[in-house]
Simulated scan of single mutants.
Amino acid sequence: MREAGAGDSKTLLLIDDDPNLTLLVKDYLEFRGYSVLVANNGQEGLDVLDQTMPDMIICDVMMPELDGYAFVQRVRENPRTNWIPILFLSAKGQSADRVKGLSTGADVYMVKPFEPEELVAQVESSLKAASRLREHPTGRLEEGPTIQVPFDVSLTPTELKVVQLVARGMANREIAEQMNVSQRTIESHVSNMLGKTGLHNRTELSRWAIENNMA
């Protein structure tokens, strides 16, 4: 019997070339109420996206034909799909691998093997964050004039990733856990961005990022 819950009416695209893992993850997610589409590699994943629009993508990194990094880049470059939250599943668990995955454009990086409950928790968290963004179609978190910052502000790749997660409504602690760094490091990045932009708080930073299509 399928377990009803937060997954009802949500469609996930699962991309992995390991048939055993694909079957296990698909069965578990469907049991939790999600509808799951399956692709064996990044190219097949792009073909699926040409036909339908999932609420989230779960993607392996190392795959034939088109690997996870190249797939995510293609998804992020396409205005039609660049909003879709993406979760990377990978056997590569070094800090450099996590940083590369997140910098490429993934929202979450999980290392195999993983606990199914943790996967579901990450999926639900990502879907809630995406839903919060869709509730503000004008790209503004609150009423008010467009945020003004110096025209020559330049963010580092890490700062850009941090501000994207800030704009998704994530706390510094959550961002630190996702990027596998200390909370103090994230606080330092946020402080640096506030200094660069002349903004006063995380709310203004979020609005600025969304209004300038950074998130």
Rank of each mutant, 00 (worst) to 15 (best):
I147L: 15
E115A: 13
L155Q: 01
V111M: 09
S126T: 02
E3I: 14
L21E: 06
H200T: 09
V75P: 03
H136K: 15
G101H: 06
V166N: 07
L199M: 10
A215V: 00
K26W: 11
G42F: 08
A70H: 07
W208F: 13
M53P: 00
M63S: 00
K10F: 14
A70P: 01
N41E: 04
L155I: 00
V36F: 14
M62N: 10
Q178F: 03
V38Q: 14
T104G: 03
S131E: 13
R168I: 00
P79M: 05
A70K: 10
R134N: 10
V38P: 02
G105R: 08
N192T: 07
A91G: 15
L165R: 07
V99D: 04
T22M: 14
N213D: 12
T158E: 15
P145S: 05
P157M: 04
L160P: 00
I58W: 08
D18T: 02
D27Y: 12
A167P: 06
H189R: 04
Q43M: 12
E211C: 11
K26Q: 15
T203P: 02
T185H: 14
L141D: 11
V48I: 09
V61L: 14
Q122D: 10
L102A: 04
G139L: 11
Q164N: 10
S35G: 09
L160D: 07
K161M: 09
L21A: 08
L205D: 02
S191L: 13
D18Y: 11
K10Q: 05
N172E: 05
R207K: 13
V25G: 01
